[in-house]
Design a protein around this nucleic acid. Sequence first.
DNA 1: GCCGTTTTCGGCCCGACTGTTTTCAGTCG
Length: 579
Amino acid sequence: MATLSNAEIARTLKEIRTLMEFAGEPFFKFMAYERAAETLENAAPASQLIASGELQGLPGIGKTIAGRIAELLESGTIAYRDELAAKYPTTLIDVLGVQGIGMKTAQSLFKEQGIASLADLERAVDAGALDGVARLGKKSIENIKRGILAFKGRGTRTPLGRALPLALEIVAYLEAGGKARELTVAGSVRRAEVTVGDIDIICTSTEPGDVIARFVKWDRAEAVLAEGVTKASIWLAGGLQIDLRVLPADVFGNLLQHFTGSREHNIQLREFAVRKGLRVSENGILDVATGTNTTCRTETDVYAALGLPFIPPEMRLGVGELEAAIAGTLPVPVSLADLKGDFHMHCTWSDGTDSLEAMIAAAAARGYAYHSISDHSWGRGKSMGLDPAELRSQAARAREIGERHGIVTLCSSEVDIRTDGTLDFDDATLRELDIVVASVHNAMNISRDAMTARLIRACENPYVTIIGHPTGRNVQSFPGYEFDYDAVFAAAARTGTALEIDGQPGRLDLPSALARRAREFGVTFALDSDAHSAAHLANVAYSVGQARRAWITPAEVLNARSLEGVRAFVAAKRSAIAR
DNA sequence: GCCGTTTTCGGCCCGACTGTTTTCAGTCG
C-alpha cells in the first residue's frame, strides 16, 4: 500500500472538488469533497483509520469518499479524478488561485479563449485578449494582473513561527497608535495552524479611520491591497497578506468568533444553531421565530447563547469538538500557565548558543519549579555531543547553578536513538540521569518496519523518559520518517514513556493530529521548547498551542506535574522494566 | 455526497465588498 500523508490525500480531494465545480456538478456534491478534505487534514493517518475501520464515519466522510480514499491509497490514483482531469486540466487550479478570478471567470476564459493555465492567462493579459470580455472592465483586469504577481510571489504558506511574531508585531504597532481597542489576532494564527495563508487582525475603535490609516502606513507593508472604512489589507515582502478589520464593540464577540473560524467549525456551529431556530452570523444571533437579534461582546457569550461552553480557538477544527461541547465532554486543554518546567533545552556544552548559567537563569526567570538541561550525546560527534565524563561534570555544575537561581535543575541528555533502537549511552550512564530524552537524528530513511521497531525498542528502555520530536518532521521541508504510529503510541502508553511535542517552530512535533491519536492510547506528553538559546525557551508556547489542538489536558502532561510527580513517573517506569 | 432528539429524503451557514451595472453577479472570507 502506498503511504500517502493525509495532506497529500486532502490535496487530491480538493483537486477533485475544484474540477467537479468546474465541470458544473451540483454545489453540495463538490462541497462534500472539500469538507472531507478538511476533516482529513486534522485526522489520524488515513491508512491507519482504514485499517481500524474508522475512516467512514468521520465528519463529512461517507461511503463514496471513503471508498475513493481507499482507492487512492491502494492504486495511487482515483479513476474519477483522472476522468475529470482528462476534460479539465489540473493547471486550471492555478488560474483559480489568482485573486480576482473565481469560478465563473475561469470557466468563461477556458471556454471562450482556451485559457487553461497560469501561463495561458499571462499571455492573454499581455496580449490584451481579455479586453472586452463580459464583466471584465479595466479595474478587474488590473486586479488580475496584480493577482498573477501575488500568486507567483506567494509560493508556500507561511509557517506559524514566522506569522505569529509578525502578528504580534503589528498588534503592538497598532496598539501604540492609541485608537484601537481589543486588538486581537484571529484566523488561522489564533487557531495555531502550523502554516497560515494570511494574518487576520481585528479590533474595535471609536475612530476606525485613524486605525486603518495607521495600518496601511506600516513601514513593513510592501503594498496596500485594499483600504476601506472598516477593513484594509496589506502585503508584506514575499506576498504574505495581513487583513485588518475594525468593528463595533457591541458585536466584537460575534465577529471574533466569525473571523477565528475554522470555516468548517463555523459551518457546523451554524447548522447546529439552525436546528434550534437560530441564525448565527458575524452580526449576531438571530432568533428566526421572534426576529430578535442577540449581539455579544465576548465569544463566551456567543457560545453561551447557543447553550454551549466556550470552545478554545485551537480546538475549532470541525473534528468533533461541537459534538463534545454539546455532550458536555469537551476537555479543558492544557495552557501555558499549567507548565511547571521544561525538559528539553541546550546550551553551549553542545549546540546551544547561550551558556549553561544563562539557560538556567532564563528557566528560573520563567517561574518554573524545575527544568532539565538536555545537551546532545556524543554519538552526534565529539564536537557537538557530551561523553559520559563531560555529562557528569555538567550535571554537578548545573545542580549547583540551579540552586543559586532557586530552581531545580535536573540532569538530562538528549540521547541519540541508534538505528537498532539502542541508545548512545550505556545503562550505567543513563541510570545517573534524572530525565532521558531519546531522539532519532540520523538514518531516517530506514524502512517503516525498522523505524517502528527502533522506536518501540527505545520506549522499552527503562531509562528513556521522553521520545523527543517523535516523527522528525520539518514543518516546511520534511513530512517525517515513516513508522506505524499506532504501534509506537501503544508502546509508549504501555511502557510509561512520554512523547514530546517539540515547540521549535520548524518542528512542532508530534503534529497535533497525531498527538490527538496518541491521546486515545493513554499516552503522557512532554511539552518542551527544545530551546537552543535563552530567548527560545518561549517557544514552549508553540508546543502548548499544538497540544490544545490535540485536546490534551494538564493531567496528561508530564511537565504540568509537580517535581514529585515527575520523579514518580520516572521511577515507575524504571521499576516496572527492570534489567 | 453527507446526514438525521422533527427526516433514510430533502435538506445542506452567512454575509460583505467590488466592479460593472441600473438591480446584481462574482468573489472572497
